[in-house]
Design a protein around this nucleic acid. Sequence first.
DNA 1: CGTAAAATTGCAACATTATAACCTAAGGAC
DNA 2: GTCCTTAGGTTATAATGTTGCAATTTTACG
Lengths: 156, 156
Amino acid sequence: MPASQQHDHNHCITTAMDTARSLCEERGLRMTPVRRRVLELVWQNHKPTGAYDLLAQLTEEGFNSAPPTVYRALDFLLELGVVHRISSLNAFVGCDHPGHEHDTGFFICKECGNATELPASEIKKLHETLLKKFGFSIESSNHELTGLCQNCKATS
Amino acid sequence: MPASQQHDHNHCITTAMDTARSLCEERGLRMTPVRRRVLELVWQNHKPTGAYDLLAQLTEEGFNSAPPTVYRALDFLLELGVVHRISSLNAFVGCDHPGHEHDTGFFICKECGNATELPASEIKKLHETLLKKFGFSIESSNHELTGLCQNCKATS
DNA sequence: CGTAAAATTGCAACATTATAACCTAAGGAC
DNA sequence: GTCCTTAGGTTATAATGTTGCAATTTTACG
Ligand SMILES: [Zn+2]
Ligand SMILES: [Zn+2]
Ligand SMILES: [Zn+2]
Ligand SMILES: [Zn+2]
């Protein structure tokens, strides 16, 4: 069962859009139509989506778009902290808990493709251990785990 | 101070090549000239190296090479478990402790560019915690951390 | 208002990374 | 040797991401 059937997904999107808008207001940034639409698309897909997939969706809708349009919008949203990039997939996904800088970590289900963000607390703990034991001063980190999510485990 | 000045780097390379050779023998695989040379180059660079950089080095040396040559060699070496791919850098690096499958984790120094492999034990611990707390059955994982290594911290 | 500066977008070309398809050559089994 | 499998050569192309510049929109300010 895909995650999209387990929760009110429209609520996800609305919340994400609201948060993004207020973050922009706080910081004096502009949530333009392309940026808004890219963020909506990322959330609508609700799983990691490639830049060129987003581009295709935009083009279908009449946004007169070329690669830089999408990448610029994504850069903006990454900077704002409302999307993350999953480098092992060359894909982008909406952030669960935007509004504060945080390291990224994802559990990616190889069955349904959903990417769940790892709790920041676990990542922080790992950082502390590595600093204590090995002297690594970590500035940022990204963690990408794959396996079967609980739902897919149950139904397989 | 780059890591290459802290240790006998030729020893690194020799050891890595020996290990790779015996892994091939054990498994009835062939360590061909291109494969051998790619592995040597990865170790000689001693920091994450892109496929096209390797290709350029091969070409200089008269290997009559095109992208597939390098990617095939890299695929072989990845499969053999003697190199890893760092997806945030689109780059490849020699494995510290080959011979057994393991998840990958790297601490990448943003100053000197060296990538140090994280101890498998820490990664395993993280997996266990995530399984216990959140029910994630992790099949494989990759961790990429950036910051300042101890050497660069000391000299900056 | 009017205008200048800044930010955003459109657009074309390009750069980088990776793969597909097809054929030839080399190595090993019998 | 003959057959079969594996590896490499070659060409083309796919997928992902960037640069540079002109045109437009938005904002700031007198
Ligand atoms: Zn997040
Ligand atoms: Zn799943
Ligand atoms: Zn390793
Ligand atoms: Zn360093």
